[in-house]
Simulated scan of single mutants.
Amino acid sequence: MRRVLSVHFAPCALFVAGVFVLVRAGSFSGRSDWGAVWPRRPETTLQLTAALTACAALLGLLLQPFQVRAVRVLEGYWDRWPLTARLAGVLTGVQRRRWRALRKRAYGKTGGEREQRIRADALRRLAGHPPGDLLLPTALGNALRAGELSAGERYGLTTLSSWPRIYPQVSGRVDEALRSARDALDTAVNLCWSFLALTATALPALYDEPALWWLPATGLLLAALAYKGAVTTAQAYSGLMHVVYDLHRFDLLEALRYPLPGDRESEEEVFADVSDLLAGIRPERRVYDHRVRGGPEL
Rank of each mutant, 00 (worst) to 15 (best):
V21L: 11
V21F: 03
L22D: 01
L22M: 10
V23L: 04
V23M: 10
R24Q: 00
A25F: 01
A25S: 10
G26F: 05
G26L: 00
F28R: 05
F28S: 11
F28A: 00
F28M: 11
S29K: 03
S29D: 09
G30E: 08
G30Y: 01
G30H: 12
R31V: 10
S32I: 01
S32C: 11
S32T: 08
D33E: 14
W34Y: 15
W34T: 02
W34P: 04
W34Q: 00
G35K: 09
G35Q: 09
A36Y: 02
V37M: 08
V37A: 01
W38S: 13
P39L: 08
R40F: 07
P42V: 09
P42K: 04
E43T: 12
T44E: 14
T44R: 04
T45G: 12
L46D: 14
Q47T: 07
Q47R: 14
Q47P: 06
Q47S: 12
L48I: 14
L48K: 03
L48V: 14
A50E: 04
A51D: 10
A51V: 05
A51M: 06
L52P: 10
A54K: 15
A54P: 09
C55Q: 15
C55F: 11
C55R: 09
A56H: 03
A56F: 05
A56Q: 01
A56M: 02
A57D: 12
L58D: 13
L59T: 12
L59P: 03
